[in-house]
Every structure is written in C-alpha cells, then in structure tokens.
Write a protein that binds this DNA or RNA. Sequence first.
RNA 1: GCCGGGGUGGCGGAACUGGUAGACGCGCCGGAUUCAAAAUCCGGUUCUGGAAACAGAGUGAGGGUUCGAUUCCCUCCCCCGGCACCA
Length: 863
Amino acid sequence: MSENYHPAALEPAIQKQWDEAGAHRAERGDGERFYCLSMFPYPSGKLHMGHMRNYTICDVISRYQMMQGKQVLQPMGWDAFGLPAENAAMANGVPPAKWTRDNIAHMRGQLKSLGFAIDWERELATCDPEYYRWNQWFFLKLLERGIAYKKTGVVNWDPVDQTVLANEQVVDGRGWRTGALVEKREIPMYYLRITDYADELLESLDQLDGWPERVRTMQANWIGKSEGAEVSFACGEHTIKVFTTRPDTLMGATFMAVAAEHPLAKEAARNNPELATFIAECQKGGVSEADIATQEKLGMDTGLKAVHPLTGDELPIWVANYVLMGYGEGAIMAVPAHDERDFEFALKYDLPIRQVISLPDGQGFDDQAWDDAYAAKDGELVNSASYSGLSCQAGFDAIVADLEKNAAGKARVQFRLRDWGISRQRYWGCPIPIIHCDSCGDVPVPEEDLPVRLPEDLVPDGSGNPLNRCDDFLNVPCPKCGKPARRETDTLDTFVDSSWYFLRYPCPGNDQAMVDASTSQWMPVDQYIGGIEHAILHLLYARFWTKLMRDEGLVSVDEPFARLLTQGMVLAETYYREDESGRRQWFNPADVDLERDDKGRVTRATLRSDGQPVEPGGIEKMAKSKNNGVDPQALVDQYGADTVRLFSMFAAPPEQSLEWSDAGVEGAWRFLRRLWSGVSQHIARGVSPGARPGKLESEGRELRRLLHESIAKVGDDFGRRYTFNTAIAALMEFSNKLNRFEPVNEQDHALVQECWEGLARLIAPVTPHLAESLWQRIGYSGSVFEAGWPEVDPAALVRDSITVVVQVNGKVRGRIEAEPGSGRDVLEQAALAEENVQRFVADKAVRKVIVVPDKLVNIVVSG
RNA sequence: GCCGGGGUGGCGGAACUGGUAGACGCGCCGGAUUCAAAAUCCGGUUCUGGAAACAGAGUGAGGGUUCGAUUCCCUCCCCCGGCACCA
C-alpha cells in the first residue's frame, strides 16, 4: 500500500472489494433487521449537496448498524415522474422519458462513487411500468372501496396557453410563460378520502415517539381537528349550513358570508350583474392558500337575508373572498366582535359589531380596534338573552342543545384537512386507468389490461397535456360494451408514487403482487431520513397510503416510519453584481476570491476572472437561481468521497442547515491525511493485531481513558443522538492526542495498536474507504465492518482525580483537584482554602454553600 | 395571513438533565522548516483593560424565576421551512 493518502486510487479499489464480497446486500447472516431509508431523489440531472448530505447521514447510520451485527437494508430509487422533466422537454425538445433515464444513469454513477452501502439490486424508478402498474391496480381497488371518488376542484388556469398551472408556475398572479393573469377554474378530478382517516392520522401521531416533536405538531395542526357545531340558517326556501367552532358566540352573529363559488352566491348573481362581476373578480388570481390569505378582504352584499335560528333576526348575506369553498360548508356566520377576520371585514363594510363575551375586568370593548383578548374563551356570555351569565363552555353546550331541539344544528367535529386531489392534467406521470365511454360512463380498465402504459416518445410544448393529441393512447374500445371510447388523460399526483415506494424495496421484482411477505419482514422502516420541507405533505400521504394498504390486507403495520430524522438545507454564500437596470448577475462562490483583515474578517470579494469586486448577497439555500450551488462531484474528484462525506457530517448537526465551506473541506482533508500518516508511523514500528497493553504509565493511562471515553461518546452520537458533528470532533480530539503520544516501551506500543484499531472502527461509518484501508494496514485481512463496534473497557474509564470548579456568588474564582466521589465537606473545605477564592470570600459572611459532587462548589456570601 | 423552527467569537458550530460559555474545525496572527514558495509542524486567538496574574462584560433585544440561565417563563425584533399542482 502506498505511503501517501491517495483516495482517487484507494476508493475505487475498496469499492471493488465490497462489490465482490456482496458486502451491501441486505439479506446477510441472521442478525436483527434494520431498514434505513432516505427519501428517494428526483432525478434532476446531477447529485446536489442536499442529496449528498441526506445519503451520507443514511449511510453513516446504516454502517453503524451493520457494525452492531444487524442486517441492514439501505435501498435507493428514483422519484422519476414530475414537472421538471416536462420543463426540460420544452427547453430542449428531448422527451421526458429519455431525459429522466439519462439523468438516472448519471446520478447512479455518482452515488456509487460515494461508497454508500446501498443494495443496488433493489433499485426502482417510479416511471417504470413494473412500478406504476401497482399505482393503477391499487387506485382501482380504492375506487371499488369508495375511497377514490370524482368531484370538481379548483385549479390555476392560464387562459393563453389553455393549460392548468402548478402553484409554482404562477408568479405574482400571472402564468410564468405567458404572463397572462391566472384564473381559477373548476374541473372534474379524482380525490381520495383522506378525511375518513383524519382521526386515525391524528391519534397515531402520539405513538410516533421516534419523530421530531415539531413534525408531529405540524401534522396535527395540518389535520386541524376542531370541535364545534353546524348551524342552519333559513334563507327563503333554501338553508345555509355553516360550521363554527364558537356556537357560544351565535348571539353575536351579525351577518353571513359565503364563498364566491357557493351555490347561493351563483344564484344571487343571476339577476344581479354587479354581483356577477364581483364573483368573476374573485376568480382572478391563484388558488394557493398563501395567496388567498394575504389578499385584501373584499366582499359584496347579495341582498339576500338569512334568519337567525334562535332570535329570528334577519342577517344580511355577503359574498366574501376570505371564505373558502373547500373548508367546512363554504359559508360562515360572522361574529365580528370575537373573530379577527370578521372584525376586519365588518369595519371595512360598516356592518354591526355586537359583543357577546365579557372581557377581563377593566378592559373595555373598542369596536374600532381589534384586540386578541376579544377572541379568548375566558369570559362569560353577555347580551345573549337567556344565555347571558354562562361560561363559554356552558354557553356552547346550551346553545347547541337548543339548536338540536329546533333541528337547526348539532355538535360536529370538523377537520382542516381536505380530501386529497390526485388528478393532474400532465403528461409525465402515471396514467389513471379509466376509460370514458359515451354509453357506459367512466369504466375502470380491467385488471388484466394493466399497466396502462404511458407513451414515452411525446414532447410537451406547454399548451396542455400532449396525451390529448396522442391517438394511439386515446382511442380504445370500451371494456364493457366494446364501442369506441376514450382513455382518461389525467395522470396521478407524483405524491402517489412516493407514498408507497418504501414498501416495494423489499420485493422489487415481484410481478404478481404489489408487495409480499418480505415487505412485512422489513417494515416498519427503522430510520427514515429526508428534508424538513417534506414534514407535512409527503409524510402525511405516506402514512395515509400505508393505512389504506393495511386495510386492503397488504401490509401489517399501522405506521410506516418508526423513527424520522429531518435534515436541514445546504446553504452557501451568494455574490452578485448589479447592472444599470438593477438586475443582478450571480457568481458562483468557487469563482470568487476573498480578502481578509488581520482578524480574519472578509473585507473584499473579487471575481477571479477579472479581479473586479462583487457584492456578497448573503447566505442562501443552494439554488440555480442564485448560482451558489457547489458541485459535490468536483469535490469528490479533488479530495475523494471520504473527505466530502466527513465534512458534510462535521460542519453541522443533521437537523440544522449546513453552510458549505471549501476551506472547511480542506480541514477535513488535512485530518484524514494526518490519520494516514499517523498509521504509517505506527506501522513502521511494527503491527501486532489484537495486542492490548498491560500496566501503563500515567500518560498512557490517560490516552487509553480517552480512547474508551471516545468509544462510548461516538457510539452514543451515532446510535442515539445522531449528532455526527460532535462524534467527529471527539475523534479529532482523540487522534490529536494519539499522534502526539510517543511510545517508549512494548506496553505503549500495544496501546497505540489498540488505539488505531479503535479509531479505524469508530470512524468507519463516516469514512468507510479510509477505515477499511487503515484496518488492513494495521494487520487485518477481513473487513472493518465485520470486525464490529469496539467495546468500552470500564476499567479504562477510572480517574484518580477530577477538577472541580469553585464559584463565589455564581462566578468562577478557582479550581480544585479532588478524588472522584469526594464528600460535601471535603470539597467545601478545599474550595474555601483555594487562594483566589479566599480573596473573594475574605471576611464576608458565608450564607450558603452549594455542592454538586464531582463538578462544582458555589459559595454564596453576603455583601 | 396561518402553522412550525432558528438566532452563541471574524466564520461553521459545542455546551446532552439548570452547574466551568466558546469543545472541534475554519480563518487570522506569530514561530519552525525552506534559497524561496506551497505543503507540513509548533504556539496564540470572545471582547475590553493589563507585561502578567487577574478583573469587567458577554449567547438577537428587554424583563422575570434561581445560589447559579445559552438552557425555564413573559414581551419584542430578525431570519428560514411549509401552506394542499415544485419535489
């Protein structure tokens, strides 16, 4: 083996050894199973730093578990359907299928060069008919069960391109390509009744104690269970139903508001042109919740009146753009005194505000200025006829009881969660297996005709779905009556693809069933790792889909992911220049030179190519738009995979965002080179595999203690805490000490051998190639991963003396050395005797002494 | 707008259960080595004062609880993620 560290030669050689030994096959030996999964990538072209980080975390955990003797399944696949392939097709005329498959081939090669312990025999891509046929098969099952159904939904419509736009394709209310003002349009779509599972999805969050609390909270809020009442208001021969969480405020309702899409609004508009214009106005703009929530609240009186079910009063009915058709009943009773949005609306349109809940003593109700206290449930009912004097809860119950008596309402639970719309008016996705027949209606494709294959040679041009112009795909005889019929051209939401891929990895080749017994053997996933941006949608849909498959008898688990780690984003500095029109041109950090002052502060940034200054634009998520992406491949080519892996694990804990730094990569590289040369020195003195020291001098004892402390610390960080940065810091600290240790006798030499054996094994999950090679260099022929995780020798951890901090009034004034386990009195006496401590205690009265054994003494003095 | 998270030296971060703030790394400063440079090695590095010992200040801002707060509580500011058709 060469004298210097040459990862470019070393890493492929080690990878070859692993491949030949089948080292990464999941089914190996008879250990406990451990399913370690990362969110599969969208094949966008090449690997970016976010992928690199995600898969390194997954690999570190996988390899650590392998060293614990487990059978580890670490699979990889491709979330291969989706919008970017269509955009690429529009840009360069290449069919999405070809673009996608080329990208997969390239990215697979990149992943392999990083040395991940992936079982490649299980690879899958969602654009393969062998995969998506099961989407279609299961969709038809759901249709039979009534979980899938059809209704209309609202989409973004580009009137120029005559096409449906994704939310991200709507920029400032306009289509991204045409610049046309976007409209809302209602179209028929398939939905899944996720709301039927809302209660279970909420309840079982409690069991997910391996999930970050914040993700569970976000999901709970998203599902948004609220207990309230539905109330019916008569309006002529119609009834308007509303849902309210505050029936206790019913006596304060002063008007009604309905969504622009509400049937009553449409009816009222028929002979009211002004209202029709207003409703049309409400159709402008995008459909995203953020757009709707931030737009100005607008409304118009319909002229219709609703009858208050308890008082008989007439309330005006308004159309308001802040009422959502998709939530509750698409109509609300407005109680401006106790709801902030209603208050704002009432103030704007001069509608009455009637306080019905009392405020804390001394606070008056100001009907010109909102205060959050108005929405509280702490007061009692006032101005509420016979209900006055009741608490909010009692008022709630009494009013609901009276509504039930009058058949004008009842208690009801409402979820914020809406049913999942799964139809997409897109080409590059899984075809929905339905045939439209003029005589038979919507007919499911018979199971034996699955999969409905997506033609792979089409090129979208931005004006709608090209499947609509593809006769070979469209024309098909009706399966029921045989007459000419037409295929559904909508495809499935790509969230469907990603909702069950982890169930397929255990049985990738099975062409008889969606999943089989091996899926049950591996499920649930022991550790799932992916970006925090998926905290709600993907994770909720995957949980839902798992429950659907459970109820179909296909899997036995209730929840798919036992433990979840949400990694932060990868960021980098941005640099730009502004031209005269104020437009910014962005420069890649790799092309920028920095000057610093003598404190290391950056004083000037210049572009390398012309030496002229550029402006720092702050630290941002790596993105094409800011040109601040750092290509992992370039770094792997320069430093090797282990260095890049090491730095990406060292720079930040996994849950936090990680700021990329080329200088930091340099530091990781230096560390690995020191390891290499340190081992070279040791080898020069002769190796003795398995040797352990006998009696050591104090320096040796200290080094050995640090070794065993490091084994405990690093094991805890890898296995429990998942703070790889602190594990690596501990390994750096230990290796610094080891490199400085000068062995003077046989015992010392055996100690150094023990240290290198430990270090090679401890660092193996992070830098597997280097570790494997160190292991071989210090005298072993097998794999370091088969050697397993080292054991802590408790005898090595014993200390003769420890440092105890002495504080006076909470400030550190000195340190004393003490035997571990020293009693209060001993520590207190020694503390008071300390020279600097005496200066601060002097003649003052000691009021109290706090002793934390083996740690700290705090002397509280007066004056 | 709503939901969730974050803010610690020049920089990335550490401090795990309320107990030494700044581990480890980067950068910077000084030294060794070198004809010279790179690389490497050694030492220093929160700020202020001081030759030093040491003292004072200090974890986004303000307040509180405590012998003791980066950690717990309240108010505020700023940054980031998600908001159902980006994945």
